[in-house]
Design a protein around this nucleic acid. Structure first.
Length: 416
RNA sequence: GUGAGCGUAGCUCAGUUGGUUAGAGCACCAGGUUGUGGCCCUGGGGGUCGUGGGUUCAAAUCCCAUCGCUCACCCCA
């Protein structure tokens, strides 16, 4: 049997209602905050991600779906959206059309990792990118958007974590201090952490190994090394969040894995999913546009994992979706009236009613069972008797009441 | 890339120390009402027990390999 590729999932008809519900909540809130949708291609030239996300990151280093096309160009299925959006922003000179763009997207992403709970190779994200302003209000705003969406989906077991990485200069100072602090303990660190000591020392904090965390006790704290401007900036973000009633926790170890972040970073985690507990994450990336050879343009954004959010919703049992209803089910039996039934259905369908009937030549009882399963509000009986006498029977499935009407009434009938 | 666990009907699972035609519930189809649902009853279809090899008189059951899935590490949405 040919199966879906490892780490990919079919979204079956029975899954669709919850996806539609999530999408509708997401779109409502983006509209409330006046964000406009952007759609970019599913693949890009590999260099975009290599330069935008950073050569040293795991995503670029070992997780991308990369291949050569027939023109020998290296192509990569997008592993995230920020680089693509900024690329489109630069390519179409959007900055010259209006100074600030508030954009959102919903799109599949691809990363070649080992699948586990909450982690797929093709997964879906929604997210925003606000490009063109360095106001801390936007940092707070996007955190609120993410938080509000999750709350509106009914999630409660949430933790908002925020941090500030400062500007590159202050971060460099801090790294120097941290390196100094860890230097004589270096050979006691785990192998991974020793590697990080050299490549990206901040990420030593991410280690889950106890001995590493022991060694980190008493380490200098990033927030203490922020430059004055970044400190004030971070204070404003926190104040706005407090006024918006968004509970948060400062996590000085929250260093996101993508190279382009500066100043604010944040993450919202759920206690109801597996170990992949980040439902969304993001931050400010004021230097990214330059890295992609655009004019210096500040930006801030987040991405949220749809499959993880739906998993959290299922585990918190937050989704009570309205049942799909069908307006009419037409039951026929005996005489071969299928074409007449089809015509009757057409009349109603063109009047915008949802209508179904039996294509499988099943018994009247089976048809009624089907009507019931489909939550039909009304059943139309249309058999030999009715047809030869020019009428149909209409049964209200809720009350069980049944009446007869002339066939002509199909063109005018109104329900409820 | 590393580690652990699990593969029996479409789905969730049972299958005793290896023993003869492999079961249940749900779902599906039909009948119980010669044209009428939800409950109930009866019957039916559907499985080379993941695959390949081995041990044995005999393997779903024991051994090996392989593939797949799941979870965790890593990393992240």
């Amino acid at each position: 049997m040919i199966k879906a590729v490892t780490g990919t999932k079919d979204i079956l008809p029975s899954d669709i209602p919850k996806w539609k519900h999530l999408e509708s909540v997401v779109q409502t809130i983006f509209k409330n905050f006046n964000y406009s949708e952007i759609r970019t291609p599913i693949f890009e030239e590999t260099v975009l991600f290599a330069r935008g996300i950073g050569e040293e990151t795991d995503i670029v280093g070992k997780e991308m779906y990369t291949f050569l096309d027939k023109g020998q160009t290296s192509i990569t299925l997008k592993p995230e959206m920020t680089a693509s959006v900024v690329r489109a922003f630069i390519e179409h000179s959007l900055a010259s059309k209006q100074p600030l763009y508030k954009l959102y997207y919903i799109s599949p992403m691809f990363r070649q990792e080992r699948p586990q709970a909450g982690r797929l190779r093709q997964f879906h994200q929604f997210g925003v990118e606000a490009i063109g302003s360095e106001s801390p209000i936007l940092d707070a705003e996007i955190i609120q958007i993410a938080y509000d969406i999750l709350r509106r989906l009914g999630l409660k077991d949430l933790l908002v974590k925020i941090n500030s990485l400062g500007i590159p200069e202050s971060r460099e100072n801090y790294k120097k201090e941290l390196r100094h602090f860890l230097n004589d303990k270096k050979n006691k660190l785990s192998e991974d952490s020793q590697k990080r000591f050299d490549t990206n020392i901040l990420r030593v904090f991410d280690s889950k190994i106890e001995t590493d965390q022991e060694l980190l006790k008493g380490a200098p704290i990033l927030l203490d090394y922020l430059d004055e401007e970044s400190k004030i900036y971070f204070n404003i973000v926190r104040n706005i969040l407090r006024e918006a009633d968004i509970p948060f926790e400062i996590d000085t170890k929250l260093v996101r894995g993508l190279d382009y972040y500066a100043k604010t970073t944040f993450e919202i985690i759920s206690g109801k999913v597996g170990s992949q507990n980040a439902l969304c994450g993001g931050g400010r990336y004021d230097l990214l546009a330059e890295q992609l050879e655009g004019k210096p343009t500040p930006g801030v954004g987040f991405a949220a994992g749809i499959e993880r959010i739906l998993l959290a919703c299922e585990n918190e049992k937050t989704l009570s979706l309205p049942e799909e209803k069908l307006d009419f089910y037409i039951v026929t039996v005996g005489e071969n009236l299928i074409e007449k039934v089809y015509n009757a259905a057409s009349i109603l369908r063109r009047r915008n009613f949802s209508v179904e009937f039996d294509y499988l030549d099943r018994s009247a009882k089976a048809q009624m069972r089907e009507a019931n399963k489909l939550n039909a509000r009304f059943v139309i009986f249309f058999g030999g008797d009715e047809y030869s006498n020019g009428y149909f029977s209409l049964k209200n499935m809720q009350t069980g009441e049944q009446k007869q009407f002339p066939l002509e009434d199909l063109k005018t009938i109104v329900i409820e």
